[in-house]
């Protein structure tokens, strides 16, 4: 019940944020720009519109997660509103989990708005609104679980800018971890091999969540792999949130 209060409060606070509304408006404008690009793409207009839609949904929801998530906890400390929360009989871990779930609720709402706009654009441009595209959006949401968890994790001990930079860096690296595996395979040094392998499993493998090309080209997605990817996101984000709670528990105000 106490967590529900934090969730609701975080949700309201984020919704009122101007950054949130601006990003959604820009995302929809980018999607609409597909209408201009469609006739220029020489028979590949449908693919281009779908690509623009899916990529802008991912990009702008990631921006919200990184920018809003990065200052979520810090803002409470800076404005000293945290004292009101800490002085009440509520566990600190509940506060962090509430913040995390609240932001996820905001992101879910964002995705919902953007997906509706995307499908509306597809219908208006007379492009068959393939339901497979939703699978990609679903995995983007799972990727957001991890990115939001990372943003909140960094937000518990650093300033909003540093936290956003760290989260973005990990988001970027998370898409290149397969190169670490290749490095481990190619390297002759056992130390490099071990280090690459450790980093490969330690860092989030965000490339798992990228099925945009597959859904646009109507490639079959194996349900088992899809399910495992969701479970991976669930466990990885849980670990990050537990670590965030541990750090927040030890913090002095």
């Amino acid at each position: 019940m106490k967590i529900a209060g934090v969730i609701l409060n975080t949700f309201r606070e984020a919704i009122r944020d101007k950054v949130f509304i601006t990003i959604i408006v820009i995302a929809i404008l980018v999607m609409v720009s597909g209408k201009i690009v469609q006739p220029l793409a020489m028979g590949e207009g449908d693919k281009v519109v779908k690509d623009i839609g899916l990529n802008s949904i991912t990009l702008f929801s990631m921006l919200i997660a990184i920018l809003v998530g990065g200052r979520l906890v810090y803002k409470e400390v800076e404005k000293r509103t945290i004292y009101l929360v800490v002085s009440r009989p509520i566990h600190r871990w509940k506060f962090i989990i509430g913040k995390y779930l609240g932001l996820l609720l905001v992101l879910f709402e964002t995705l919902l708005i953007m997906v509706c706009a995307f499908y509306l654009i597809l219908v208006l441009l007379k492009i068959s609104p393939n339901l497979n595209l939703l699978l990609s959006v679903l995995l983007t949401f799972c990727e957001l679980w991890i990115v939001t968890a990372l943003a909140i994790f960094f937000s518990t001990f650093s300033t909003p800018i540093t936290s956003s930079v760290f989260t973005f860096a990990l988001y970027f690296i998370g898409h290149l971890t397969r190169d670490l595996k290749v490095l481990a395979l190619m390297s002759k040094s056992p130390q490099v091999k071990t280090l690459s392998d450790i980093l490969y499993y330690l860092l989030p493998n965000l490339a798992n969540f990228n099925i945009k090309a597959d859904v646009v080209h109507n490639v079959y997605i194996e349900p088992k792999v899809f399910m495992f990817t969701i479970i991976y996101a669930l466990f990885y984000s849980s670990i990050i949130i537990v670590l965030s709670c541990l750090i927040f528990e030890r913090k002095d105000f």
Binding site: D51, F209, K212
Partner: peptide, 20 residues
């Protein structure tokens, strides 16, 4: 490819338009 991380398809579309 690594520079554009998960936005490869969007980048491919941009390159496609540029190619035309």
């Amino acid at each position: 490819k690594p520079a554009v991380i998960e936005y490869q398809t969007a980048m491919a579309d941009l390159v496609w338009l540029r190619a035309i």
